[in-house]
């Protein structure tokens, strides 16, 4: 029996500070980093709040700041056109494959454009292997709507022989690394891939009912419209802060989100708002929080962003 008294009653002494003996091998800086990352995991909302109170976000950006965009086209030789986009850490690869099909009976002179986004299990721990998740389905549908509404590629330009043969462009985007805001990155990748796509010259032989392409004749780029759709997304946190281009850490903490797809000259192609976008960040004379609708601000910010993207990123390619 040990000589020290080991009481079976619960200890009434004040709680001890967390034992740090097991962290002694780390430097003070590393210990702080570990504590911060534990705090981030256990209390993500508080963690983000503390940053936003200082008018900065966890990755160092301003509230309305954007992540750097990197674009690379034409690296996949098996595809008719391809593009790789990195928006911060979010990486999306888009490849365009062309096939030939018979047109629909009521749209004899129109081809097909089939965009799809795949969020495989590899891009984030929150996606499981298997059929497309809800998020992937929603994003695919939104991309489809955005591309069709903007008419960036008029479907009549994909016609080879009216009523007999048309081009089908399968645009498959794969997200390789998901760090939030896959929609913006994917739309940019798809648009860039379309600009990079070239199709062989095809001729339909009505006798043999076959469509043959020529290897010797040069390939033809797509007849795209001048106005390319660019998407910009925002999130509202705690009904107080408007965050542009949210990351994967911020996304689940948002109360509401706004996604704007703009064409040339600021025309709105699509606008999606989920949740209330009334922000309370100003107090009036009585100390009451004033509610402000930020939708217009977001659209303005999106316009500015689009100009920057089109000039620097797309026109370089």
């Amino acid at each position: 029996m040990s000589s020290s008294t080991t009481s079976i009653l619960p200890s009434l002494s004040p709680p001890q500070p967390p034992q740090t003996q097991h962290l002694e091998h780390l430097s003070q800086e590393e210990q702080d980093k570990l504590k911060a990352s534990v705090f981030q995991r256990l209390h993500p909302k508080l963690y983000l709040e503390k940053y936003l109170e200082e008018e900065v976000r966890p990755d160092g950006r301003e509230l309305g700041g954007w992540r750097g965009v990197f674009l690379n086209v034409g690296s996949i030789s098996t595809a008719e056109g391809s593009a790789l986009v990195r928006m911060g850490d979010t990486t999306v690869v888009c490849g365009v494959k062309a096939e030939i099909a018979e047109p629909e009976l009521d749209r004899e002179g129109e081809g097909f454009l089939v965009p799809n986004l795949d969020l495989p299990a590899m891009c984030s721990p929150k996606f499981k292997p298997g059929p497309p998740s809800e998020e992937a389905q929603v994003l695919s549908e939104r991309l489809n709507q955005a591309l069709l509404t903007s008419n960036v590629l008029p479907l009549s330009s994909l016609c080879i022989e009216s009523g007999k043969a048309v081009w089908v462009l399968y645009m498959d985007a794969t997200c390789i690394n998901y760090d939030g805001n896959a929609f913006d990155a994917t739309l940019l990748a798809m648009v860039a891939a379309l600009r990079n796509t070239t199709l062989p010259q095809a001729k339909h032989d009505s006798e043999t009912h076959q469509t043959l392409c020529s290897r010797s004749k040069p390939r033809v780029p797509l007849q795209l419209a001048n106005s390319v759709p660019i998407a910009t997304s925002f999130g509202i946190f705690d009904s107080k802060y408007v965050l542009a281009d949210p990351t994967a850490f911020e996304e689940p903490l948002l109360d509401a989100s706004i996604s704007v797809v703009l064409g040339d000259g600021g025309e709105i192609i699509s606008l999606e708002q989920l949740g209330s976008v009334l922000v309370e960040d100003v107090q009036d004379g009585n100390g009451e929080w004033v509610k402000r609708d930020v939708l217009k601000e977001c659209i303005e910010a999106a316009r500015a962003r689009r100009d920057v993207l089109v000039k620097e990123v797309l026109n370089g390619k």
């Binding site: 096939e99 099909a101 097909f112 497309p132 399968y170 392409c213 020529s214």
Partner: peptide
């Protein structure tokens, strides 16, 4: 139903020269 679908049937294009 989980993806955007294209036409029911489509063939990859063939080059004249290959035939």
């Amino acid at each position: 139903r989980r993806r955007t679908n294209g036409p029911e049937e489509s063939t990859p294009f063939i080059y004249e020269e290959d035939i």
